[in-house]
Nucleic acid binder design. Structure first.
Lengths: 135, 135
DNA sequence: CCGACGCATCGACGAGCGTCGATGCCTGAC
DNA sequence: GTCAGGCATCGACGCTCGTCGATGCGTCGG
């Protein structure tokens, strides 16, 4: 009996889940295979990076920023958080593979990683398809 | 100053974010508009429902289950959690609008809400597009 | 060379979340 | 009516997370 497993997921942020996350998506089979525990862990890790209003807002601001990139100083005011907090959130997003960091001079520019977002979206539609296709 | 806002998001689970969550997606404009704070909050609330391996696994199991639905008794073993814990996670998913609950007899059947998943996916690609379109 | 600036890291605090056992409610069987 | 079964709720326990002020490191301007 699994006596008291890890109380939480102990997020380790191993970048984005890999590629074929939705292994239960398009293929056939009677009912597909319900993603393994490890796969679910990877997916949840990346979702956890998006599970905060500040991070969603940061992602959006960077995405709509001119040039596709923004430095920390430009992100502090819109989200209404202190600079260390913003740096903290940005690190989480970078570790999750959703943002990329590039230091130019004494400014750190963050830019979006569209492939990572697209992959998350694929995992979601894969889940929905697994349901709709067989139902 | 914003002196010490809510230390966490105080998730209230208002169902799925609404419809046009990705307001910064397809439209035009020089740089789009970076989702409001309220919008980011709704999005983050729904993502938070997916930010746990057990919940991702539950969603996947229900999606691939025969008939598109499953009762709690069928979900307890695969995730390796106690029954109260599974009920707790299921409630979170239902409140987030990702699952729907239907009580038949003394069994409670949970089924997927594909539209909610698709909407989340749209929000993600909307963010990616906002970046790719202008870059 | 030195001060100013941008940013990351550290340490600490409080709130939220995941987990479980125990308990209660409702349904169906006898 | 009574008993058994499925599920939700409650209360409690740690761990995790978000937040900040203070501090340190590296870079540019004078």
């Amino acid at each position: 009996m699994h006596g008291k497993m890890a109380p939480m997921t102990t997020i380790d942020l191993p970048a984005v889940p890999a590629a074929p996350a939705s292994g239960d998506a398009g293929c056939c089979g009677p009912a597909g295979s319900p993603v393994g525990a490890d796969e679910a862990g990877d997916l949840a890790r990346t979702f956890k990076a998006l599970a905060d209003p500040a991070r969603v807002q940061l992602l959006s601001i960077v995405a709509t920023a001119d040039g596709g990139e923004a430095c920390v100083c430009d992100l502090t005011e819109p989200v209404g958080l202190a600079q260390p907090t913003v740096s903290h959130h940005l690190k989480i997003l970078v570790d999750a593979g959703l943002l990329s960091r590039e230091q130019r001079g004494r400014w750190a520019y963050y830019s979006l990683v569209p492939a990572a977002l697209a992959q998350m979206a694929d995992s979601l539609v894969g889940l929905a398809d697994a349901d709709g296709a067989r139902r």
